[in-house]
C-alpha cells in the first residue's frame, strides 16, 4: 500500500484514507476542506433527522450515532493500526459509569465528561501496556478478556455500581434537543478527527504498523509508543460515547455493557469498512439500526444477523465502504468509455 509523504494532503473521495492514486474526484479544487465541508453537511442532515423524525426512528438513529463515535475510536487502533481490539465496549462502559457517578455526586457536566475521558484513557493506558507484547489473535483474545472483567466488576462492585440493578442517570442536558445536538456534533467531530489523524504522521505510522510491524520498527517508527497512543485515543472515543449513551438512556446497568458489545463494535467496524472514515457509521447503521428497525431481537433475528456478519465479511473483504468504492469506480469507468 502506497503511503504518501506527510503533508501531501491532496483531496480524495469523501471517507477514504490515503490510497493509490486515482482519478481526480469532483470538487478537488477545494483541497482538504472538501472532506470537512462534506462532514459538516452530513452532520446537519443527521441533526435534522434526529430532531424531526418520530421518537422511534430518532432513538434508533441516536444509538447508531453513539456507536459511530465509539466505532470511530476503534477505527484508529483497529482500522488504521490493524489491531483487533475487542474491548471498546469496556471503555464505553467506563465512560458511562464514570460520568454518571460524577453527576450523581453533583459535578457539573463538563467535569463529569472530563472524568469519563480521564478514566477511559487511564484504562486504555493500563490495558494497552499489559497487552503491548501481544499481536494478532493473542491481542484479540486478551482484549476480549478485559471486556469480560469490566462486566464482572460492574456486576459485583455493589457499593459503587448498584450491581445488576444499575444506576439512574442524572440528566445533565436541559432538553432532548440539546442532547440531540450534542450527539450529532460529537459524531461529526469524531469522524473529522479520524480524517485528520489518518493524514497526519500519527495515522501514517499506525498504518505502517498495520502493513508490517517489523518493517515499521526497522524504518524507525516507535511502534510500542504509537500503538499505545492509538489505543488510548481509541479508549477516549469509547468513553465519550459512553457519556452520551448514559444521558440518552436515563439508566445504565451491566447488561448494557457485556463483553459482547465490544465484540459487536469490532464487527460493525469490519462490516462498514475498517480504516475508512465513514466505515463505523455504515457499519453501525447495519448492525445497530437494521435489527432495531426490522425488530430482529432474538432467535431467528440473531441467526440472520450472524449470517450477515459471515457473508458480508467473506464476500466484501473491505466492508461496505469498499463495495461503494467499487460501484463508483464501475460507474465512472463506464462514463469515461462513452
Amino acid at each position: 500500500m502506497a503511503i504518501p509523504a506527510p503533508g501531501s494532503d491532496t483531496a480524495r473521495p469523501l471517507g477514504s484514507l490515503p490510497l493509490p492514486a486515482r482519478a481526480r474526484p469532483p470538487l478537488a479544487w477545494l483541497g482538504p476542506a472538501r472532506d470537512y465541508l462534506g462532514l459538516v453537511l452530513l452532520g446537519v442532515v443527521l441533526w435534522l433527522l434526529l430532531s424531526r423524525t418520530n421518537a422511534f426512528y430518532s432513538s434508533v438513529l441516536a444509538s447508531i450515532l453513539i456507536w459511530t463515535i465509539a466505532g470511530s475510536g476503534l477505527n484508529i487502533i483497529a482500522g488504521l493500526g490493524g489491531y483487533p481490539s475487542l474491548v471498546q465496549g469496556a471503555f464505553y462502559a467506563i465512560g458511562a459509569y464514570g460520568a454518571t457517578l460524577a453527576l450523581m455526586h453533583g459535578w457539573p457536566l463538563w467535569q463529569a465528561c472530563l472524568l469519563a475521558i480521564a478514566a477511559s484513557a487511564f484504562a486504555g493506558f493500563v490495558i494497552g501496556l499489559i497487552l503491548s507484547r501481544t499481536r494478532g489473535q493473542y491481542f484479540a483474545i486478551g482484549t476480549m478478556f478485559f471486556g469480560v472483567v469490566v462486566e464482572i466488576v460492574l456486576t459485583n462492585w455493589q457499593s459503587l455500581t448498584n450491581g445488576q440493578l444499575g444506576l439512574d442517570v442524572p440528566l445533565a442536558f436541559a432538553s432532548m434537543d440539546q442532547l440531540n445536538v450534542a450527539i450529532a456534533v460529537t459524531t461529526i467531530v469524531s469522524l473529522m478527527l479520524v480524517r485528520l489523524v489518518g493524514r497526519r504522521r500519527f495515522g501514517l505510522r499506525l498504518m505502517t504498523i498495520r502493513e508490517d510491524e517489523d518493517l515499521a520498527e526497522h524504518l524507525g517508527v516507535p511502534t510500542a509508543r504509537i500503538k499505545l497512543a492509538g489505543f488510548v485515543v481509541s479508549a477516549i472515543f469509547g468513553g465519550v460515547a459512553g457519556v452520551l449513551i448514559a444521558q440518552y438512556n436515563g439508566t445504565i446497568s451491566p447488561a448494557l455493557f457485556d463483553y459482547y458489545v465490544g465484540f459487536v463494535m469490532f464487527v460493525a467496524l469490519s462490516v462498514g469498512g475498517a480504516g475508512r472514515i465513514l466505515g463505523p457509521l455504515l457499519g453501525s447503521v447495519f448492525i445497530v439500526g437494521l435489527p432495531d428497525i426490522l425488530n430482529l431481537s432474538s432467535g431467528i433475528g440473531q441467526l440472520v444477523v450472524g449470517l450477515i456478519f459471515v457473508v458480508v465479511i467473506i464476500v466484501i473483504p473491505g466492508g461496505f465502504m469498499s463495495a461503494i468504492d467499487g460501484a463508483i469506480a464501475f460507474v465512472t469507468k463506464r462514463r469515461g468509455r462513452r
Binding site: F263, L303, F309
Partner: peptide
C-alpha cells in the same frame, strides 16, 4: 477457509458463526 489469510476478519466470522449456531439451537 475464506478468511484464512485475513487475521482481522477471523474474529468477526467466528462471532457470526457462534450466533448462527446458538440461535439455530434456540429456534
Amino acid at each position: 477457509r475464506f478468511v484464512r489469510t485475513r487475521p482481522l476478519a477471523a474474529p468477526v466470522v467466528a462471532l457470526g458463526l457462534l450466533l448462527v449456531l446458538d440461535n439455530s439451537a434456540l429456534e
